[in-house]
Amino acid sequence: MASIVRMIAPKRVLATLPILLLAACATTRPPVRNAGDAVTLGLQEQRERALGDTDHWTLEGRLSVASDKDSGSGSLTWRQEGDHYDFTVRGPVTGRTFRLSGGPDGAELEGLEGGTRRGPDAETLMAETVGWQIPMAELKRWVLGLRADRGPADIAFGADRLPSRLVQDGWTVDYRQWDATKQPAMPSRVFAEKPPYKVRLSIDTWSLGR
């Protein structure tokens, strides 16, 4: 499958998934990683305190996903409003739109042939519809460059003292670029992998707040 527009049947919607690529004002991620000294870890803790309550934001960019059987890509708009989220993915050729939205009361996946699918939550809906296990609660934190609240996490830093790699819940999240013009700096290129799944996210714009 060459692009998201070919994902019609429920089992071929992989490219619509949100998990986890290039900002104009981004810093290139250095190849060297380190566990971080006291100062670096302190800066990360400050970052997590500053952004920990940030749950109203919008990002726009591009998304590509792949497994050992499928792949696809499209433009992405992700709006987060507290516990409610709205992922809209558009195919690069036809503009066909897929939309995953929901919150504590359940989730919906629109744009499929045969109509909208619903589930008790995004994780269950994705697993039943496309066979993916998507850690939605963690992803909401990871995309901000933060450790998720659930379970232990290993974090490594680049020479700029920004997170370079985060390993948590079986996923490896690589932060390939950061937009250093933002205060605090925000991720602009994020690769997430949990074999056989790979997700690449290029964030063009961040809008924080309501």
Results as ranks from 00 to 15, higher is better:
Gln44Ile: 05
Pro196Leu: 11
Gln168Ala: 07
Leu22Gln: 10
Thr97Tyr: 00
Arg150Ile: 09
Ser164Cys: 05
Thr27Glu: 12
Met186Asn: 07
Thr97Lys: 12
Tyr175Ala: 04
Ser164His: 09
Ser207Arg: 15
Gly131Asp: 04
Phe98Arg: 07
Ala159Lys: 13
Met1Asn: 07
Val89Glu: 01
Trp57Gln: 09
Ser188Asp: 04
Leu208Val: 15
Asp149Ala: 11
Arg79Val: 15
Leu22Tyr: 00
Leu20Ile: 11
Ala66Ile: 05
Arg29Glu: 08
Lys11Arg: 13
Arg189His: 10
Asp204Asn: 14
Ser71Ala: 12
Val93Asn: 07
Pro187Asp: 06
Ser202Gly: 15
Ala148Met: 02
Thr97Glu: 13
Pro163Ser: 07
Pro92Val: 10
Glu48Met: 13
Gly145Met: 05
Asp179Leu: 07
Arg33Leu: 14
Lys182Trp: 04
Pro152Cys: 02
Gly61Pro: 06
Asp154His: 08
Pro135Ile: 04
Arg118Tyr: 00
Leu43Gly: 03
Arg147Pro: 02
Gly209Glu: 11
Gly74Lys: 02
Asp83Glu: 15
Pro196Cys: 09
Glu81Met: 14
Glu123Gln: 10
Gly158Phe: 02
Thr40Pro: 08
Val199Tyr: 03
Arg161Cys: 03
Asp160Tyr: 03
Met126Cys: 10
Lys69Cys: 07
Leu166Trp: 01
Glu138Gly: 15
Lys69Ala: 13
Glu113Tyr: 03
Arg165His: 04
Phe191Gln: 13
Ser188Arg: 06
Met7Val: 06
Arg161Asp: 15
Met136Phe: 04
Asp169Arg: 09
Gly151Tyr: 00
Val65Ala: 11
His84Ser: 15
Arg90Ser: 12
Gly145Pro: 05
Val130Lys: 01
Pro135Thr: 03
Ala2Phe: 00
Leu17Trp: 00
Thr77Glu: 12
Ala185Cys: 09
Thr172His: 03
Thr28Tyr: 00
Gly158Arg: 14
Ala26Asn: 04
Ser202Thr: 09
Gly158Ile: 08
Val143Met: 05
Asp154Gln: 13
Gly74Tyr: 01
Gln133Phe: 00
Gly158Asn: 10
Ser101Cys: 11
Lys182Thr: 10
Ala137Lys: 14
Ala180Val: 15
Val190Phe: 00
Gly95Lys: 04
Gly209Trp: 10
Ser67Val: 07
Pro195Leu: 11
Val190Asp: 01
Pro92Gly: 09
Glu108Phe: 03
Val173Pro: 01
Ala148Lys: 04
Ala23Trp: 00
Arg33Gln: 09
Pro30His: 09
Ser188Leu: 03
Leu125Met: 06
Thr124Ser: 14
Thr16Val: 03
Glu81Pro: 02
Asp174Ile: 06
Arg147Asn: 07
Pro10Ile: 08
Gly95Ser: 03
Ala185Trp: 03
Ile203Thr: 11
Gly42Gln: 02
Tyr197Gln: 15
Asp160Glu: 13
Val39Met: 06
His84Val: 12
Lys198Thr: 09
Glu60Arg: 15
Leu100Met: 13
